[in-house]
Amino acid sequence: MKAKIRVGIPRGLLYYKHKVLWTNFIKELGADPIISPETNKEILNNGIKHSIDEGCLSSKIYMGHVDWLRNRVDYVFVPRVASYSKNDQTCVRLFALPDIVENTFYGIKLLKYNLDIQNGKTEKVEFLKLGLKLNKNIFTVISAYKKAKIRQLEYEKGQEARQIKLLENVGKLKILIASHSYNTYDKLIGFPVKHYLEKLNTEVIYADRVSKNNAIKASCKISKSLYWSHNQEILGAVELYKDKIDGIILLTTFPCGPDSLVNDLCIRKIKNIPIAYILIDELQGEAGMHTRLESFVDIISARKGVTRCR
């Protein structure tokens, strides 16, 4: 029997957003998706070694994951996601991912698709092209895409429903982590923050578990000319949840391009909710962050007139 093709998916950047779609699509085509492990110090260090020092921490971590995968799999899956609709685009760093990976790891075999609605590259066609590389049967590819897409939508809806339930929960303080999903769920960036907030007996709300269309509409109330779709979602979540939450944490990696402007605008425009702006770089020690989070939670509880149980 022929061995299954192993396709490596780096656990970084857009993986957290599209993971169900990607893994299911590859699985349905009869290949074996291999996801790199949770980020650890070694992956981070390898990532730093293989990237430009001025790139953002999230992209350095991504390079670390690619480095971990490249000798263990047949193909590494590095898509280019440039725009989701006619009038938005993603971060410019994501534009160049396949090119950067190919030029850094010379001779690496990539699987990629190019989602760029502004230039007429739709998701369906691009997935078809991608699928035909793994499986020659076009009908299998189409049905695989459909199945994977449905599962992705179901997953997103489930996440959203669960979060709405959490928001109705009155007892605890609710804190929104307003950050890109690749920062929120990363083991080194967002996980310590989330873990510590839970330890302080607060409920953590995620900015990306919100209906995408509603969020983008809501973001127009804060900023009209914003065109980064991921930031639109985050800002929209802030706008949608603003009456239901007690505090916002803006979690950013250094030096994230879009966030540098959007967070500044967010702090200037949103007045009646406490906001903590936490900037994380590769040298982060946890003690400083703990102090900041603790004092932030203290301030919120003092505002609400609740004493925090220790």
């Binding site: 001025e54 790139g55 410019v92 760093r93 160049a96 090119d99 950067i100 030029n103 030096p255 391009g257």
Partner: peptide
């Protein structure tokens, strides 16, 4: 400028170009 996203994107590519063509490149930020 420091943190310029498109130019950071093109730096790894320039590094390879520099190796291939044996041309020195000086980077300023």
């Amino acid at each position: 400028p420091f943190g310029c996203m498109p130019e950071i994107n093109c730096m790894p590519i320039l590094q390879r170009l520099s190796q291939d063509y044996k041309i020195p490149i000086l980077y300023f930020s």
